[in-house]
C-alpha cells in the first residue's frame, strides 16, 4: 500500500462541514421529439465526511447526475444545495475528479503546476500555492513526482495527481466519476484505500460513481442504486462495515457479502 505516511502537512483536517442536498433533480437532454429524460425526482442528502457510491447499469445516467451535482450541467428541474446554498455552477467546496485522468491533466504543465493551477486561478501567490500542491501530492503518495510531466507518470499516478488537485483546491466534497476504472487491479485497490485514507485524515466527503459493486460496498457508508428509465433511486443500501477497512479482511466478512448481494439484486431488478 503506497498511501502517504502519517504526519504530513495535509494532516490538518479540514473536516468537511458541507452538507450536499439533492432535491427532486431531473435532467432531460434535447427538446421536443428527441427529448430524452435521463432521470427524474432524484432526492439524496450526503452528510459531511460521508462516502456515498452511486451505482447503476451502464447508460442509466450516473455521469449525467454527477455533472449536475458538480454544477457542470444545469438540471431541468429540482435543485442541488451545498451548505444550504443553491448551486448555480461549480463552487469552491466541490472538487471533481474525472474518469479520464489523461485528458484532465494538462500535458504542457509539470504535475505540481497542474495541481496548483486552480489555486493560481484563485489568485494565490506562488510561494503559497506550490508548497500546498506539494503537500497535496504527498498526501496521495506522490511526493517527489511533482517536477515530472503528467505523461511521464503511470496511469495510477496520474489519477493520484488528479485527486491531489482536488485536495489542494481545498474541496470538501470530492465528486469522482469512475475514478479507478482505467487502472490495473492492484493500483485500483491502492487508490480505493487512498480514498478511505483521505476521508479518515482530511475529513472530506466523497461521492463516487462506479460500475464495480465490490468497490461500492467496500468504500461506502451508503450505496445509492439508480435504475429505470427515466432513472430514479430504487434503493439506498446502508453499509455497516465500520471505519477501519482493508482489502483482505473486510471483503471476506459475511456482512460484505450480504450487502453486496442486496445491491446486486436491486440493480438486476427489472
Amino acid at each position: 500500500m503506497t498511501t502517504a505516511a502519517e504526519g504530513t502537512a495535509m494532516d490538518d483536517p479540514r473536516q468537511s462541514t458541507a452538507t450536499l442536498e439533492v432535491r427532486g433533480l431531473a435532467k432531460t437532454y434535447g427538446t421536443g421529439a428527441e427529448a430524452h429524460e435521463i432521470f427524474a425526482g432524484i432526492d439524496l442528502t450526503v452528510a459531511p465526511r460521508e462516502i456515498v457510491c452511486i451505482v447503476g447499469p451502464s447508460g442509466v445516467g450516473k455521469t449525467t447526475l454527477l455533472r449536475c451535482i458538480g454544477g457542470l450541467l444545469a438540471p431541468t428541474a429540482g435543485e442541488v444545495l451545498v451548505e444550504g446554498q443553491r448551486l448555480r455552477g461549480p463552487v469552491p467546496q466541490i472538487g471533481i475528479v474525472f474518469q479520464d485522468y489523461s485528458r484532465s491533466l494538462l500535458p504542457w504543465m509539470r504535475t505540481v503546476d497542474n495541481v496548483a493551477f486552480p489555486l493560481e486561478s484563485k489568485g494565490m501567490k506562488k510561494s503559497e500555492r506550490i508548497p500546498r500542491a506539494e503537500a497535496a501530492l504527498e498526501a496521495v503518495g506522490l511526493a517527489g513526482s511533482g517536477s515530472r510531466y503528467p505523461w511521464q507518470l503511470s496511469g495510477g499516478m496520474q489519477q493520484r495527481a488528479a485527486i491531489a488537485r482536488a485536495i489542494a483546491y481545498e474541496a470538501e466534497i470530492l465528486l469522482m466519476d469512475e475514478p479507478f476504472a482505467s487502472v490495473d487491479a492492484q493500483t485500483r485497490a491502492d487508490l480505493e484505500d487512498l480514498a478511505l485514507d483521505l476521508r479518515q485524515r482530511l475529513g472530506v466527503t466523497l461521492v463516487l460513481v462506479t460500475h464495480d459493486i465490490d468497490e461500492a460496498v467496500y468504500l461506502s457508508d451508503r450505496v445509492v442504486v439508480l435504475s429505470g428509465r427515466p432513472a430514479s433511486v430504487v434503493d439506498v443500501v446502508d453499509i455497516h462495515l465500520g471505519d477501519d477497512r482493508d482489502q483482505l479482511t473486510t471483503k471476506s466478512l459475511p456482512e460484505f457479502t450480504e450487502d453486496r448481494a442486496r445491491v446486486l439484486r436491486q440493480i438486476r431488478r427489472p
Binding site: 455533472r67 458538480g70 454544477g71 457542470l72 455552477g89 461549480p90 469552491p92 466541490i94 472538487g95 471533481i96 474525472f98 479520464d100 485528458r103 484532465s104 494538462l106 493551477f117 486552480p118 486561478s121 488537485r165 483546491y169
Partner: peptide, 10 residues
C-alpha cells in the same frame, strides 16, 4: 475533458 476541468475548478 479539458473544458470540464476548466469549468469545475473555476
Amino acid at each position: 475533458g479539458v473544458r470540464d476541468m476548466v469549468d469545475a475548478y473555476r
